[in-house]
Simulated assay, not measured.
Amino acid sequence: MGERVTDERRIPVGISSCLTGEQVRYNGGHKRSRYCLEVLAERFALEPFCPELEAGLGVPREPIRLVGLEGESPRVVGTRDLSLDVTERLEAVSRAFIEDHRHLRGFILMKGSPSCGLARVKVYRPDNGMPSHSGAGAFVRALRRHFPELPLEEEARMNDAVLRENFITRVYAYDDWKRHVEATPGYHALLQFHSRQKYLLMAHHVETYRELGRYLAESSRRPLGEAMAHYLQRFMAALARPATRKTHTNALMHVFGYLKEALDAETKQDLLTAIEDYRLGHVPLTVPIRLLNHYLKRHGSDYIRAQTYLDPHPYELGLRNAI
């Protein structure tokens, strides 16, 4: 068991209130998440929020749903009382929340909710009340408009090991940005961030890795605020694309390249076998990563040992044991 994380070191992450066990759902119930409260709460300072409760809808309350035609922004109305339209109220409380919570590093959402659902929330036709298509909840749409860099994920989707690891990787990367770039803005801080995140970025989207490298080569010609905003938007969008065995293998081979001159032939073959076994799906990612870390501690440069790709989140969470 790893050391206990103090409150000061836990990362602030928002969460739909019902997932913490608060009885705020329309029927007075909750959707308590054991994983969030018993595992993630060790590392994250969870900050609950329920936009529907904040909008004054009360508990219990009439259920609400999204209504609209495909291609237009849906309204949020009552399922029984169609005159109950809370679209503007939800937008207002969402905007107020975002303005007061720029310190967050991520948000864990409730699946299927007309306010908090990340995707696949049913949208009903206004004429006949039949399901038309699906989309995101009202609160999520506000987050994407006004806080687009914030990592978002549904609690239910974190049952998928790849999506779970991806979300937590994004939270830690964004925390790095907030603490080391946003807190002390400068071209040097921006370049240092990119330097240590390079292979993590490569593992998620190699095209963005190349694009941002070219962009930063000329970043000092641009206003600092503009360069930082552009970089963060592209960086977080790239990390939102889950890495695959193929893209991880590419990053692993690049890291391995920093050891080729220092190792004997037998050791190099052991490492290459571990990477190939991972590529073929025979072992999880943690196997080649552990081997690389072992040899990098002895033979790696400061540059390669500083790569967040080698240790993007606490080892105790075991996230790379399942991917």
Rank of each mutant, 00 (worst) to 15 (best):
R144V: 04
S132E: 10
V140M: 06
L118K: 10
P148G: 11
A119R: 13
R120L: 11
N128C: 13
H146K: 06
E149C: 12
F139A: 12
M130S: 14
N159W: 01
E153C: 13
S134R: 06
P151W: 01
G135T: 09
A138S: 11
K122L: 12
V121E: 07
G129A: 03
M158D: 12
G135L: 03
R145S: 15
A156K: 06
F147V: 04
G129E: 03
E154V: 07
F147E: 10
L143V: 12
R144Q: 15
V121P: 15
D160Q: 02
L163K: 09
N166F: 08
V123I: 14
F147D: 12
A136E: 06
E155F: 06
N128D: 15
L118S: 12
A142G: 12
N159F: 04
L150N: 08
A136T: 02
A156C: 07
V121A: 12
A138K: 14
R145C: 13
G137Q: 00
E165K: 07
A156I: 05
E154T: 10
M158R: 02
V121I: 07
S132I: 01
E149T: 10
L163W: 01
A161T: 05
R120C: 13
P148R: 00
R120V: 08
E149K: 01
P131R: 00
A138F: 02
S134W: 01
A142D: 11
A136R: 07
K122N: 14
R157C: 13
L150P: 13
R144N: 15
L163T: 08
F139H: 12
L163P: 07
H133T: 08
G129I: 01
V162A: 13
E165G: 15
E155A: 11
R120T: 06
R141L: 11
P148F: 00
S132F: 03
R120D: 14
P151C: 07
E165T: 07
M158F: 03
V140F: 09
N128Y: 05
V123W: 03
N128E: 08
R120A: 15
E155N: 14
S132T: 05
V121C: 12
E165D: 05
L118Q: 11
L143E: 12
G117K: 04
P131L: 00
F147Y: 07
A156F: 03
A119G: 04
E155H: 04
H133L: 04
K122C: 14
A138E: 05
S134I: 03
R144A: 12
E153D: 11
L118P: 15
E165Y: 07
G129C: 04
R164G: 14
L152G: 15
R164P: 10
L163I: 09
D160A: 05
P131H: 00
D127I: 08
G129N: 06
H146C: 14
P131S: 02
R164V: 02
H146L: 13
P131K: 00
H133K: 02
R125G: 15
E149L: 08
A142N: 06
E155I: 01
N166G: 14
V121R: 04
E165A: 15
